[in-house]
Design a protein around this nucleic acid. Sequence first.
DNA 1: AACATTAATGCACAAAAACGCAAAAACACG
DNA 2: CGTGTTTTTGCGTTTTTGTGCATTAATGTT
Lengths: 248, 248
Amino acid sequence: MLKKERHDFIMRQINLHNRVLTSDLVQLLNVSEDTIRRDLQELVDEGHLFKVHGGALSKSYHSSFDDSTVYARDKKIVIAKKATELIKDGMVVLIGGGTTILEFTKQLPQGLSATFFTISPLVAVELAKYNNVEVVLIGGLFSKNSQVTYGGHVISQLSEIKADLCLMGTSALHPEGGLTDTDWEINQLKKAMLACSKKSAVLCISEKLNITLRLKVCPIESISYLVTELDKEHESLSNYQKKDVNIL
Amino acid sequence: MLKKERHDFIMRQINLHNRVLTSDLVQLLNVSEDTIRRDLQELVDEGHLFKVHGGALSKSYHSSFDDSTVYARDKKIVIAKKATELIKDGMVVLIGGGTTILEFTKQLPQGLSATFFTISPLVAVELAKYNNVEVVLIGGLFSKNSQVTYGGHVISQLSEIKADLCLMGTSALHPEGGLTDTDWEINQLKKAMLACSKKSAVLCISEKLNITLRLKVCPIESISYLVTELDKEHESLSNYQKKDVNIL
DNA sequence: AACATTAATGCACAAAAACGCAAAAACACG
DNA sequence: CGTGTTTTTGCGTTTTTGTGCATTAATGTT
């Protein structure tokens, strides 16, 4: 059996059960423990899984109990604060989910009076704390991974909305590749959200810049505002500025 | 079981109930006390929880008193545990909001496979933690007071659902007056929820029994199950028993 | 104060990982 | 084809890690 085949086999097991035991793999693949260990190490180096004593766990498994420690929280707060400038009294805003967006909802000025449509329950709960803000939660199937509603029902309801601004987090942004994502459902969702908004703003920590993922949501030109934690003039933003995106 | 998995299990318990007992974990995980203690110590070192004599507490327990301020929490937990008996694999359940219901979502058995429709974002988020549970969030205007979606849009979507069981908290229950409420919107909502379910269960702490409020939702006969923290045979429940309500 | 429960500590043992080394296989290239 | 190089693999040894047990200390209860 080829190394590559072993690696694939291991990844299948991981995707299936979220875990593998070294000893099991030794039996199943009929090779020595060392080989398995080396395989696992290589898969770790490629960032595909997570090694622990006795075996390995899926990468996503790890994040399951870490909701207290939001990754790169400080940067996200900076972004969130900047983004509040975009919201004016009387606006109708369509807003997504994700940790950055959630941070954003905590940074809004108290007196703000606006209407928010959202697909994220957590965002809805946060926004409801503002007295003069009206919140509409768009219902549908609820995604365990991304913690937002999704599916046909959501899309069809989105099609009935006309918002002034669409605010969303992002998985990846690239000057040429535009806004991209890995999950098909989320991809559809973002497309629909953009389609029903006059303008759009993307909240994006810098490490997600200049990356392209599998599925394309929209070209860079469709984005009105880009909000990062970097300074407006930072060189890594120049490629976006050229494309007529407003940098915040 | 891998160490990491144990840690994860412990953290799930903590996030769910804000506390764990060392002795419980020993039983549940089938390892020695020492191992549990070491696990807890490591989780403390990583800053995930808070160790006390006899077990550990959630870190947020100390800072945010959200959970401890829930009125009559202990009683509600008793009710919630009883109510889980009503849920069987494969069921389609329509579930409301409120603190009692939220407690209920934390008491369900891990393996449960069912579909839940809900009008409460917080309930949706909790239910999404169960792997085999499908969650559909019913969208609409979001109420700041009761933290559920409401309004015409919700009602019209409810009319398209057919559920096996409807589970709701309650403001007041009376043997003659039936289920009553003070808020007109919530009243409409509860009516609609009952209308689309084959059976209905009301979760109700005893002090809300024998009270009638302004607006009537339904007569007592429309309720299939009544779940309180009292013993089945308690005298204050006899008036309900007579009306053919199943007491849990 | 006496007692029971829970923690901490040191120790022993087993399982797993890391490391260095050597054999075998695959590959490169004149 | 043959020779030198790299890659892959397995083995023995040493370290590290995980676990349980016995003993002692601390804590809570009545």
